[in-house]
Amino acid sequence: MRKTLFAAVAVAMMATPALAQSYKFVIVPKAMNNPFFDFARDGCLKRAKELGNIECIYKGPVEHEPATQAQIIQDFVTQKVDGLAISVADVAAMTKSIAAASAAGIPVITFDSDAPGSKRIAYIGTNNKEFGTALGKQLLKLRPDGGKYAMISGGPGAENLAERVNGVREALKGSKWSEVPGSPSFCNDDPALGVQQMTDLRTATPDLAAIIPVGGWPMFAPEGFKAFASKSKKDIDAGKFTLVVADTLRMQLELLKEGYANGLVGQRPFEMGEKAMDTLLAIKKGEKVSDIIYTGLDIVTKENVAKMLK
């Protein structure tokens, strides 16, 4: 009787599938007050729920503060989480943080902003050089006549933003466009400061013909951006002043539709969050992953903005 019972239990155990191992993966943005990263968070949460054995933890500095980001990562290393996906605010600082995580046996990938010389295993996001080139080409298509232009960037230590700036310059090289001295200005991912810098640039160079923010920061303060653009609305409508802005969040699409900008070039942060979970899980399973995983771009003008809003 006892042998029969043991045999039945053994058969039942063999027939019951083993529960999948659960993991805690962390997605660390540059700044949590940047709505761009909300989409990466949402993609991470959605994919974690679909996978079932993943917990997506979303935490970063409230504002763009590389030192705070490094401390947050160190805290997660101490907690021995199962994987980290980081949008790199400062390459030098994050290279050290990534090395510390790697030494602790925690796999690290980057998303949105890379640290290519670090010990990260993969990068997920935009080809930032192509992104900048697309912004420059958009301006060139809208205004082949050229003029003076300026750029607004985020943090000076961010590799992805430096690549975008170089892409814009490469696209406009040899054209009738010339960059004003002091460009780009750095808003440190602060939307209000981004709007103020646009005003300052317009004041400093009255004949400024275009501004290209290589991130969506000024538009992330929609009322402030609208107030700025309203003062130049006649010039925008007449083709004398052009605004080509990075990213395609809903608030930006609405501003474009209302005529407060001329064009947008967008990324796909939701996909970045999704793919971050897939990639970290694959690494934990011992699978080989691609070093670079690009998520693509979207070009938006007044002709297709209504479609994008749907």
Rank of each mutant, 00 (worst) to 15 (best):
L139D: 12
E159V: 15
G224F: 02
F228I: 12
A246E: 00
L249H: 02
L142M: 10
D189R: 06
A134L: 11
V195Y: 00
E159N: 12
A227F: 03
P206T: 06
K233A: 12
R164T: 04
Q197A: 01
F131M: 11
L253W: 01
D207V: 09
L256K: 00
P206G: 03
D207N: 07
A261D: 01
G259R: 00
L142W: 06
P222H: 05
I236A: 10
F225D: 00
P156W: 10
K234H: 13
T203F: 13
K240Y: 07
A150S: 02
A238L: 09
D247L: 07
N127R: 05
F228V: 09
A162P: 12
A192Q: 14
M251D: 12
K240H: 07
G224T: 05
E159H: 13
L135H: 04
A122H: 08
L172I: 14
I236P: 09
S232I: 08
N166G: 13
A229P: 04
A192N: 04
L243S: 06
L140C: 09
G154R: 11
V180H: 01
A209F: 02
K231Q: 11
V245Y: 00
V180G: 04
K233C: 12
A204G: 08
V195C: 09
G194V: 04
C187R: 15
F186K: 08
D189T: 08
